[in-house]
């Protein structure tokens, strides 16, 4: 498998001094769907923008299909497609005009645009609506049009920054289907960022978990999940006090238990190798023996959510809560709007 994108020690410090990307390295193989998972302000968009030549990296090397972005940004731009986080469709133009304009910006001929435009609009189910102005489109249609525009020049790599942000579940699933179709039928390499766990899980061949400008884990979703153990039992004990500690010691001694940890919101997470369902009665019995009441108990198969929590110590939805990160997010969204 040859390499589509190669990033080495990428650092991006914005003019205000915010270190958005702090030494990121990864590489994406051709025909791979590579997911960047992290909360808002983690540095996902900044990384994409450096790779596609919209931002100048502070330091580090980026090669796209073997070409250094700094040496030949034009060649890189022609070989990639990019659909930004905000759906950049001019809603006073028709779907076709949006596409036509994009084709012209890539210096395609009228004939090429006509052929290719028909192909992508049909692929994305927008052909019938091509002559309607985009302000009559639904959110999902706008996003599809936006992605279709990014494909007009037959790029080999497609960059999707939060492709389903703000869309409802149904529409998200549809967008996923289109993304999978692009890879299967058009042999594309796809780099996508998301802060939806299911999205990274459902689509990506490999996932990089990004937190505060660094990659904290990078592997296949299955491997990432396997790394944190088999099943996960979460227990909320009712006010236990001094009795809790000896109970935790015995829990750790149970056969098949890998780890017992307390999370920030007072829930205990018990990672077990397999067959978590069989362990639950034993946990309940042990708690009774120690005189600790159980408020609730839950078993779940690991998801990327748990992986994220495991590597960052925070749930993805509570991430970005600190003051520093709030400022970081704000600075970043200001950048994005610019």
């Amino acid at each position: 498998m040859s390499v589509a994108v190669e990033v080495e020690n990428l650092v991006k410090v914005y003019r205000g001094g915010v270190r958005a990307v702090d030494g990121i390295s990864f590489s994406i193989g051709e025909r791979e769907i590579f997911g960047f998972l992290g909360p808002n302000g983690a540095g996902k968009s900044t990384t994409i923008k450096c790779v596609i030549g919209l931002l100048k990296p502070t330091s580090g090397h980026i090669r796209v299909l073997g070409t250094d972005v700094r040496h030949d940004p034009g060649a890189v731009k022609r070989s990639i497609g990019y659909a930004a986080q905000e759906t950049a469709v001019d809603d006073r133009l028709t779907g076709w005009e949006n596409l036509y304009l994009q084709g012209r910006f890539y210096h395609l001929s009228r004939g090429e645009i006509r052929r290719r435009g028909e192909e992508v609009l049909k692929l994305f189910g927008l052909w019938e609506r091509r002559n309607d102005t985009a302000d009559t489109y639904s959110g999902g249609m706008l996003k599809r049009l936006d992605i279709a525009c990014a494909l007009i020049h037959r790029p080999r790599i497609l960059f999707l920054d939060e492709p389903t942000l703000g869309l409802d579940v149904q529409t998200r699933k549809t967008i996923w289907e289109y993304i999978e179709k692009l890879r299967a039928e058009h042999e594309m390499t796809i780099f996508l960022t998301t802060h939806y766990m299911e999205e990274a899980d459902a689509l990506s061949d490999r996932v990089a978990i990004i937190d505060r400008g660094r990659i904290v884990a990078l592997d296949r979703p299955g491997a990432l999940k396997a790394a944190i153990g088999g099943d996960l039992i979460t227990v909320r004990f009712s006010d236990a006090g001094a009795d809790l500690e000896p109970l935790l010691v015995s829990l750790r001694g149970l056969d098949g238990v890998r780890e017992v940890r307390e999370t920030s919101d007072g829930v205990h997470r018990i990672v077990v190798e397999r067959d978590g369902d069989r362990l639950i009665p034993r946990i309940v019995r042990l708690a009774e023996e120690h005189g600790v009441g159980i408020h609730s108990i839950r078993l779940k198969r690991p998801t990327l959510d748990d992986v994220y929590l495991h590597y960052t110590g925070r749930e993805i939805r509570e991430a970005g809560g600190s003051r520093e990160e709030l400022i970081r997010t704000r600075v970043m969204s200001r950048r994005i709007r610019r």
Binding site: L54, K77, A84, T87, A88, D90, F105, Y106, R338
Partner: peptide, 15 residues
Amino acid sequence: DRRIGYLEKMMAAPI
């Protein structure tokens, strides 16, 4: 254009 991201879209193209 800057607000809706169209400016960025144009700049991502090789114009």
